[in-house]
Amino acid sequence: MSTQYIYLHGFASSPKSAKARYFGHRFTEIETELKIPDLNAGDFSQLTIARQITQVAAELPKDSTPVTIIGSSLGGLTAIHLAQQYLQIQRLVLLAPAFGFLSHWLPKLTDEEIQRWQQEKYLMVYHYEEGRSLPLNYNFVTDAAQYEEEILQRPIPTLILHGKNDEVIPIEASRDFGRSRPWVELVELDSDHALGNVMEEIWQAIRLFCQLP
């Protein structure tokens, strides 16, 4: 039975991102379909991890077709929580997965900004794909807080590719995650969070891991 492949883009990104386009092109070259859902779902302001999970779950094949998810950053975090719930997801490739997302992202805001966000319900967040700031509801934070890494114990073949100089999600987050999970393989790359300079290397690792032509 042929595997279905799904790519999940990162936070404040889109299916038009450099990575999404790169993988879309590579999968086309090997004549394999890669689904790339738009996790903004037409309303970035109401984004939550729960909404992403629900949206992607609806994309899963209705039969028992096995699924491999490639997830970037917050898309990677979403992918691994999906795999915990949906057994037809049988393989994961996580690119700089956003483990401990809030603990790395919130400290970049001042206490005053966070307080104002709670009170006013919206914070302006720069959206890379739109090239401008968009409002994000505080529900994003309350929702994200309930996704704990400790619960992720399903032993599913997982390849993590993470840059050693990642300025958004430190590589320690992936090292810590893999340490107690023997089914996780971590590849450390000479790159930052965007992984832009190592895409060819990542593609070769994915091909090998997923046994792609």
Rank of each mutant, 00 (worst) to 15 (best):
135 P>S: 13
149 E>Q: 10
124 M>H: 05
158 T>M: 10
123 L>G: 04
182 P>W: 06
144 A>Y: 12
166 D>K: 06
196 G>A: 13
185 E>A: 07
143 D>V: 15
151 I>L: 05
126 Y>L: 11
149 E>F: 10
139 N>W: 09
149 E>P: 08
160 I>P: 02
187 V>Y: 05
182 P>M: 11
152 L>V: 14
137 N>M: 05
191 S>H: 08
132 R>P: 00
195 L>M: 08
191 S>F: 03
124 M>V: 05
156 I>Y: 12
190 D>M: 04
120 E>R: 08
139 N>I: 07
175 R>M: 09
186 L>C: 03
144 A>D: 03
125 V>Y: 12
133 S>H: 14
128 Y>P: 00
151 I>M: 11
182 P>V: 14
185 E>F: 03
172 E>R: 13
175 R>S: 01
196 G>N: 15
161 L>K: 06
148 E>L: 13
186 L>I: 13
135 P>Q: 12
183 W>P: 00
167 E>C: 10
195 L>A: 08
161 L>Q: 06
176 D>A: 15
154 R>Q: 13
119 Q>L: 07
137 N>H: 15
170 P>V: 12
120 E>V: 05
188 E>F: 02
195 L>D: 08
167 E>D: 13
126 Y>I: 06
142 T>L: 02
166 D>S: 09
117 W>D: 03
129 E>M: 15
123 L>K: 15
117 W>P: 01
158 T>I: 06
143 D>Q: 06
121 K>N: 00
154 R>G: 09
133 S>D: 10
134 L>A: 10
188 E>P: 01
185 E>W: 04
180 S>E: 12
154 R>P: 02
188 E>V: 04
120 E>G: 00
138 Y>V: 13
190 D>G: 03
145 A>H: 00
158 T>S: 07
164 K>N: 08
143 D>T: 04
183 W>C: 01
190 D>S: 09
174 S>T: 04
128 Y>D: 01
124 M>I: 05
177 F>P: 07
143 D>F: 12
126 Y>S: 02
159 L>H: 07
192 D>T: 15
190 D>L: 08
170 P>N: 09
120 E>S: 04
138 Y>Q: 11
166 D>F: 05
133 S>A: 14
162 H>L: 00
120 E>Q: 15
182 P>I: 12
132 R>W: 07
141 V>W: 03
119 Q>E: 03
126 Y>W: 09
190 D>T: 10
177 F>I: 06
144 A>G: 02
127 H>K: 07
139 N>E: 09
130 E>A: 15
157 P>S: 15
119 Q>P: 01
169 I>N: 07
162 H>Y: 08
152 L>M: 11
191 S>Y: 11
133 S>M: 10
156 I>N: 01
117 W>R: 09
172 E>C: 01
164 K>W: 00
149 E>H: 12
184 V>Y: 05
183 W>F: 12
147 Y>T: 04
132 R>K: 12
148 E>T: 14
184 V>H: 09
127 H>L: 01
172 E>Q: 14
196 G>C: 03
184 V>G: 08
150 E>Q: 14
134 L>Q: 08
122 Y>G: 01
169 I>Y: 04
171 I>P: 02
132 R>L: 02
160 I>L: 14
178 G>F: 07
192 D>M: 01
137 N>G: 06
130 E>F: 11
155 P>N: 13
174 S>N: 07
130 E>P: 00
181 R>F: 08
166 D>G: 08
131 G>E: 09
165 N>D: 11
180 S>R: 15
